[in-house]
Simulated scan of single mutants.
Amino acid sequence: MARTEAGGYRERLLAGAMACLQEKGYARTTARDLVAASGTNLASIGYHFGSKEALLHEAIAGFFDQWIARVERSMFSTEPSSPREMLERAMTELVDVFEELRPQLVLYVESYPAALREAALREKLADSYARCREVGADMVRRAVAQLGVELPMAPEVIVSVLVAVSDGLLLQWLLDPDATPDARQVVDALAALSVLFA
Rank of each mutant, 00 (worst) to 15 (best):
S51N: 04
A17R: 01
A114V: 14
T4W: 03
L42M: 12
A114H: 10
L107G: 11
Y47P: 11
G62S: 07
G148R: 01
A179H: 12
L14S: 01
R141P: 02
R102D: 05
L56K: 15
E23D: 11
P155M: 00
L147E: 04
A114S: 10
R10Y: 02
E11A: 15
M75Y: 06
R12T: 02
S77W: 04
F197R: 01
A27F: 03
L101V: 02
L196W: 10
D65E: 13
R89T: 12
S44G: 07
E58G: 11
R133Q: 10
L162W: 07
S160Q: 11
E88Q: 14
S77Y: 07
I68E: 07
A119K: 14
L190W: 01
T29S: 05
Q185R: 13
H48M: 06
F197Y: 08
G62L: 01
T30S: 15
S82N: 07
E110I: 07
F197L: 06
D138H: 06
P103E: 13
N41C: 09
A31V: 09
A17D: 03
M91F: 09
E100Q: 12
V161Y: 00
D138F: 06
G25F: 03
V97L: 09
M75I: 12
V157Y: 11
E150W: 01
T78Y: 12
L101E: 12
R3I: 12
E85A: 14
A120V: 05
F49I: 03
E99K: 10
E58R: 15
D127L: 04
L116H: 05
M18S: 14
L162R: 06
L193W: 15
H57R: 15
A15I: 04
S194F: 03
P103I: 05
L196P: 04
G46Y: 05
A183G: 08
T29R: 03
R3F: 03
S44C: 02
A2W: 05
Y9A: 15
S111R: 09
V35M: 04
P177D: 10
V161G: 01
V135W: 00
T40I: 07
V140L: 00
D167H: 13
V157C: 11
S38D: 06
Q185A: 15
Q146E: 05
A120T: 12
V106Q: 04
A15C: 06
G148I: 00
A31P: 15
G50F: 06
S44A: 13
A15G: 13
V187F: 10
Y112D: 08
I45G: 08
G46A: 03
E123Q: 12
G168N: 07
D167T: 06
A130R: 01
E53F: 03
L196I: 10
A130D: 07
V35Q: 07
T30D: 15
S77C: 11
G8K: 01
S128I: 00
E110N: 14
S51T: 11
T30H: 15
L101Q: 08
A69H: 02
D182V: 13
R84Q: 08
S44T: 09
Y108P: 00
E100M: 09
T4Y: 05
E156F: 02
E72G: 03
M1L: 09
G148N: 00
D188Y: 14
T78S: 15
Q22C: 14
H48K: 05
R32V: 12
G8E: 12
G8Q: 08
L125K: 00
D138V: 10
A130Y: 02
G148A: 00
Y47L: 12
A126P: 09
D33P: 15
E123G: 09
Y112W: 06
